[in-house]
Structures are given as C-alpha cells and as structure tokens.
Write a protein that binds this DNA or RNA. Sequence first.
DNA 1: GCCGTTGTTCCGCAATGCGGAACAGTACCG
DNA 2: CGGTACTGTTCCGCATTGCGGAACAACGGC
Lengths: 250, 250
Amino acid sequence: MARVQSIERAFAVLRELSLGSAGVTEIADRVGLPKSTVSRLLSALEGEGAVQQRLESTEYELGAGLAALADAANNDANMAAVVRPFLLELAEATGEATGFVVRSGRNVYWADNVEQPDEAVQVKSRTGFYAPMHSVPAGLALLSHLPTHEIESYLTQPLERVNDRTPTEVDELRRRIAQIVADGVLWSFDDLGDGITAIDVPFRGASGQYEGALFVNAPSYRFPAEGDTERIQQLVVDAAKRLSGRFKVH
Amino acid sequence: MARVQSIERAFAVLRELSLGSAGVTEIADRVGLPKSTVSRLLSALEGEGAVQQRLESTEYELGAGLAALADAANNDANMAAVVRPFLLELAEATGEATGFVVRSGRNVYWADNVEQPDEAVQVKSRTGFYAPMHSVPAGLALLSHLPTHEIESYLTQPLERVNDRTPTEVDELRRRIAQIVADGVLWSFDDLGDGITAIDVPFRGASGQYEGALFVNAPSYRFPAEGDTERIQQLVVDAAKRLSGRFKVH
DNA sequence: GCCGTTGTTCCGCAATGCGGAACAGTACCG
DNA sequence: CGGTACTGTTCCGCATTGCGGAACAACGGC
C-alpha cells in the first residue's frame, strides 16, 4: 500500500482532534512531530475545512467540512444513529460501557461508544481509531463471520503485527476463528494485556453481510460479575440479532 | 494559509467520492491529475480508512474511518439529523429542493440536501462542498448575522475571488450585508449567473450564535411562482426560527 | 518588566511525491 | 479465440515540495 507521508501525518493530527480540541504544541507532542510541521499541516487542513480554530482560542477542532464530507457518504440514516439506542439499552442492562465497530476493508473502526457515567473506572473510548481486524477482539469476531473466501483472502495477505500480542500465525488465527464460529460470540479476557474483558458479537448491516460488531467492555477485575456471564452474553447476542433485523431489507 | 499539495489533492479526491463511488481514471479526469498520482493518493487514503474499494469492484468509495472520525467530532446529536426534518417539511411545502450550509471559519459547507423526486429539473446537490462565505448567497446570509466585530475581521482579511461574479469590494459587501440585515432574508436571483434562484435564511446553533443557513433553491424560470414570494419567504423564516429554538439551550 | 510558553514564519536542505512510461489484468467484440 | 481498448498498478528518474530547526511575535502570569 503506497504511503504518502503528508497524508499519514494529516490523519494522525485529525485523529488527535477527534479526541477533543487541542493546541499546536499539544498535538505536536502527541504525534511526535515538530511544531512547525504540525502548524503547517493544521493550516492546510483548515484550508480544506477539516479543522478550524475555536472561537476566542488558539486551539483547533475538527471542522464542519469533515462532517459534511462524511455525511455525504451516508445517504441513508447514519448507522451510528440506528445502533446507538441498542448501545444505550445494553449499557443500562449490563452496567458497563458499550460500543460498536464497523468494518472497512481489512480494518475495523470504533464508530460509537456509550460510557457509564457512574463508574469512575472504565475503558477509554476509542471512537475514531482503527485497527486490522485480526489484531483486536471485535475485529476477530467480525472477521469470523465473513464469507469463507473473504476470510481466506484476508489470511493470505500479510498480517500486520500491531503489537506483541497480535496473532499473526495463520494456523492459530484459523483455530481462533473456528472457535468463535462455534461459540457464536467472542469473550476476550485481557487478550491485549490491558486489563480489559470484553464480549464481542457481530451483526449484519443493510447489505445482509456482517458489517459491524457490538461489544461490552470493562476492567477485568469486575467484569463479568460472578455468575453473570450467561446473562451478559444473552443480552449482547439478543441485541445483535435484533439490530441485524433492523437493517434487514424488506 | 500554508498549502500542502498532497493534502489539497487528497481532499479533492475525497470530495469527488462524496458524490458517489468512482474509479481511478474517472477521478483523475475530474480532478485533473495523472492516474498514477490518483492511484497513490487513493492507496494512502485507504491506509487511513478514508476510502475503500467497493466489494467486487475497482471503484472506490468513502470509508467508514472518515465517518467515524467525523462522528467523533459530534458528541451530541448530529446537526444534520436535527435539521433534516425541517428540510423535508420545507421541501413538501414549497415543492422545491431545500438544504442547509454550516459555517467553518471563513467558509460555509453544504451539509445536507433534500431534492424533489417529481421534478426532472432541479438544482444539483452540493453537499460536501465548501466556499468562502462572501462568495455564495447562503454564506453571505450567514456572514451578515455574525457579531459585528467578526464581520469586520472577515472583511479586512483578503477576500478570495472564486469566480468573476464574486464580490470582493469591501464597500459593496458592507452594503449588501446591511441590506440583508434589514430584509432579514436573502433572495438571490441568478446571482452566480447559473440560472438559480434561492432564498437563504440563517439560523442559530447550540452556541446561540448563527451557525448555519437554510435555503430553498430552484431554476429561476419557475421559482418562485408568481405571487408566491411572500408565502415562500414566510415558510423559510418560520422554519429557521423554529430550528433556532430547537438548538436553544434551556 | 521579565520570563515562559505557544504558535507562526522563514529558509536551506534533501527527502518525498510526482508523473510519464511500461505493464498486468479484464472485458468486449468480431 | 485473438485482438483491441481501457483501467489500475508499479517503477524510477527527477526536482519540487515538505521538512524542521531557528528565530521571532504574541500573550499571559508573576
């Protein structure tokens, strides 16, 4: 895949701003670039409407041009708008944070997140970020439910090693995928070594294909509560089924 | 404003894709770049999740990563989701296409559009595109309702001449702004020499400031119908008022 | 008034992106 | 079935573009 340094850097900046407004120096620190470089990138992005400076501030934020561009891609009701009520319901029923990812090529993107306002400790939202499917549980759950030829195609292309917990052995991935298919869901207990437990369940989109995955996640020390695993699982599986039904073309 | 050629080109490509999926050659033709350049830009954008190739196709479309990025910027209900019912209502009442723009810095962006399915001839949607406020009627309507110091700040910076109909004389712009303020609305009869008549009315956003403008537009030969000007104007002004009320923080 | 910090601008430099050419793949037609 | 036309990808020589350190302007706090 061709790399264009300026575009990679520009999107790195945009992703930082998706977490909230920030100044030049702060963004430069986070993305590891000189302030002059970040300043120039922001200026160029401002010219494209992708960012703007906040009123009475030197901080930048994402611009309406980006939202308009993205909205133009979604002629129908935004998927997030359809999914969100299910996330709210799941968050209420489970007492933990919920969210969903959508697939884009070989990657999944964190599309939305519902946090638990009452919990001081919870998993940080990753909305706006993306990762190769095989490298995160929600992506694996989704990958497992794609058509067999697409799974094979995915596995035969180079598997990026995102971190030292990323599975890249094709045989190992095939075993995990088979297990996920057999179980119907994916429970990941601290799979990334980050103290997070999550349950991930894929759902079908308007195309009839699996396009996204719902998840509930929380720190492993409290989730799931003892004897609560089956209930949590039933809730998420049920939500994914009803959600798939919502997207079904009649 | 600093220019970064690669970023400008990348966004030109993204804007083309906001109009619908397209192949490398088609995009190259539209943006006036060699196919190798467009291919490389698309590949890089794909790496960022901003575009993806359609299933069973070589055509590219906007990617979920872009939508996720933009959604991340909108923690509250998407402005378009709030405005759209008003556009549908206005389209129904006027029988013509409706839409709205939002402000981003010195520019306005076409955020949404409702077409008239029954009309063979209507104004083409510009959703996803942007222009400096002073160069288009909707932008002028919005500019006119900003705080005085912001209007002055806008006018004292270089005014880009987008085309040969773009007003760039500060005195002329001040007169037009004063007239718009006096009228409360802006009717533009073929102002850009494109055979379009439009009525543009700004509305306030969640900040309490004017953040967008509603418009109804149609070919000048049939809009507004004889004796219908007052009714159309009342409809749009009323919609803008109620819309502003919806965003009002209680 | 001084200091610290942020954001912008400048400019020498070389790395990066460019684009023409070549090539591979695919679909269509005779 | 072979030839043609078209699309999309890859390569590579080239020089334009983006980079980043330094300097500077602006602002807020003490």
